[in-house]
Design a binder for these strands. Structure first.
Lengths: 140, 140
DNA sequence: GGAAACTGTTAGCACAGCTAATCATAGGCG
DNA sequence: CGCCTATGATTAGCTGTGCTAACAGTTTCC
């Protein structure tokens, strides 16, 4: 069991690195890096929020997220407005274009995975889906 | 099915990003970044190889790997020698210290995951292990 | 022997992550 | 009320990863 865990941690680590390197090439096509798309995704699905909330959701420090938001702002994908009720805080929100770009970014990643996942059997695919679900809980 | 794939791709992407961000903090403790540890791991488990082979194994361009090897060399974790038989090529090899550091880096990652994984039931743990296995095939 | 191909490195760019420092606003407390 | 601390966000500056383009040294092959 201990050895299993050691092995799994190593393999999970390697697999995650390789997965992201593969997908990053696809994401390049959208003109958005993985962290930017990921942050945008949080905004699209989670709704408007402050910078601190967004940074926490992405498990990143505020300065890092501030710069990511700058880039999304330049690209016209989000808006940054003073938060009502607390003028220190900002309210970051995805624009309509932001939603559209998020969607096509996702399409690209799906396309990159489809062929590979398509080679799996039905039960393997289900097992992968379940693994991802559990991984989400472990990581969160 | 199509929708399942879309959802899984998105979640897998997010989970991989968050996993690596979590583990990177642990890896910081070893003084080695994730890519450096990953490259070192390839050398430890795969044996000595050329720069091109190492770059290919890590799915990275040669200049990127050249710099990673520089760092490992500075840290005394690998050696870089002219390859016998082809003087253009180099033979990169983990040192004894490199093996030791790799091992402690792995220990750190395991420690970071142990508590979280420990909360899972036996069947969940097995499902995660199976998912990782399949993910490896998808990514490779 | 010389052109072409290959191996690796250097240079220079964009971006992500961090900490430390700064600025403005909120909130609490004498 | 006025100050003092805490908080939200940004800026500056560092390290590190990834890329392409350009170069130098070898090898290969005609």
């Amino acid at each position: 069991m201990e050895e299993d865990l050691r092995e799994m941690a190593t393999r999970l680590h390697a697999a995650a690195i390789h997965l992201l390197r593969t997908l990053r090439r696809e994401d390049d096509g959208s003109g958005l890096s993985a962290p930017r798309l990921s942050a945008l995704s949080v905004l699209v699905f989670g709704g408007p929020m402050s910078l601190a909330d967004l940074a926490a959701a992405e498990q990143v420090r505020p300065p890092t997220m501030s710069r990511i938001v700058d880039a999304l702002l330049d690209a016209g994908l989000v808006t940054r407005q003073p938060a009502p009720g607390d003028r220190r805080s900002v309210r970051i929100e995805a624009t309509t274009e932001g939603r559209a770009v998020m969607e096509t970014g996702r399409e690209r990643r799906v396309r990159a995975l489809r062929e590979r996942v398509g080679r799996l059997s039905g039960s393997e695919r289900r097992a992968l889906a379940r693994g991802v679900e559990i991984l989400e809980r472990v990581v969160r």
